[in-house]
Every structure is written in C-alpha cells, then in structure tokens.
Amino acid sequence: MRASMGRVGSCYDNAVAESFLATMKAEIGTRVWAMRAEARQAVFAYINHYNHKRLHSTLQHRTPHEARACYRQPIALAA
C-alpha cells in the first residue's frame, strides 16, 4: 500500500480507507504471518467476508454486495 498523496490537513481523501483498515485490523488482528501468501489469503478472505456476509448498519443492515445490487441510478428525463 502507498501513503496518501492528499494535501496536508485534508482528512476526507482517505477517511473511508482508514476506517476500513482499522476495522480489518480489529477483526483479523495484527499478527505476523510466516509467509506473504498467508497474509494475502487472510486479507482476501476478510474482504470477501466484509462484502458478502458482514452486515452494515449504514446500509440498513445489508451487505455491501446486497446494497450495490439494489442500487438504481436515477434516470434523467429529457426535457
């Protein structure tokens, strides 16, 4: 991962990523894996869990996958 390239004092550029990473660290821990492949597998398993099984209160207790499936772009009517 790379450090944020936003301006100093701009807290909005990576707030979502920081929140996600803090949640991931809390849920899978910060242990040291023996091999990079094991760490990668743990991160991808967590991302799959986060997107397909973990319910989010801000999404009316749905998963992000369910919320995206139900999302409809508003259609602009031509005048």
Score class of each variant (00 low, 15 high):
Met1Asn: 07
Arg2Ser: 15
Ala3Ser: 13
Ala3Ile: 00
Met5Tyr: 09
Gly6Met: 01
Gly6Val: 01
Arg7Asp: 13
Val8Leu: 10
Val8Asn: 10
Val8Cys: 11
Gly9Ile: 06
Ser10Tyr: 09
Tyr12Pro: 06
Tyr12Met: 12
Asp13Val: 15
Asn14Lys: 09
Ala15Gly: 15
Ala15Tyr: 01
Ala15Thr: 10
Ala15Glu: 05
Val16Trp: 03
Ala17Ser: 14
Ala17Gly: 07
Glu18Lys: 07
Glu18Gln: 09
Ser19Ala: 15
Phe20Ala: 10
Leu21Cys: 12
Leu21Pro: 03
Leu21Ile: 05
Ala22Glu: 13
Ala22Gly: 15
Ala22Pro: 06
Thr23Asp: 11
Met24Arg: 04
Glu27Leu: 09
Gly29Ile: 00
Gly29Val: 05
Gly29Thr: 03
Gly29Glu: 04
Thr30Asn: 09
Thr30Trp: 01
Arg31Ile: 05
Val32Thr: 14
Val32Met: 10
Trp33Arg: 08
Met35Asn: 11
Met35Thr: 11
Met35Tyr: 11
Met35Trp: 07
Glu38Asp: 15
Ala39Leu: 05
Arg40Ala: 14
Ala42Gln: 06
Val43Leu: 06
Phe44Asn: 15
Phe44Met: 15
Phe44Tyr: 14
Ala45Lys: 12
Tyr46Phe: 11
Tyr46Leu: 05
Tyr46Gly: 14
Ile47Ala: 13
Asn48Glu: 13
His49Trp: 08
Tyr50Leu: 07
Asn51Ala: 10
His52Arg: 09
Arg54Pro: 03
Arg54Ala: 02
Arg54Cys: 02
Leu55Cys: 04
Leu55Arg: 01
Leu55Asp: 01
His56Glu: 00
Leu59Thr: 04
Leu59Met: 12
Gln60Pro: 03
Arg62Tyr: 03
Thr63Asn: 03
Thr63Ala: 02
His65Pro: 00
His65Ile: 05
Glu66Leu: 01
Ala67Asn: 00
Ala67Lys: 01
Ala69Trp: 02
Cys70Asn: 12
Cys70Met: 14
Cys70His: 04
Cys70Pro: 02
Cys70Ser: 12
Tyr71Ala: 08
Arg72Glu: 11
Gln73Ala: 14
Gln73Asn: 10
Pro74Ala: 06
Pro74Arg: 01
Ile75Ser: 13
Ile75Arg: 09
Ile75His: 07
Ala76Thr: 14
Leu77Trp: 00
Leu77Gly: 11
Leu77Met: 08
Leu77Ser: 12
Ala78Pro: 01
Ala78Arg: 05
Ala79Ser: 08
Ala79Pro: 03
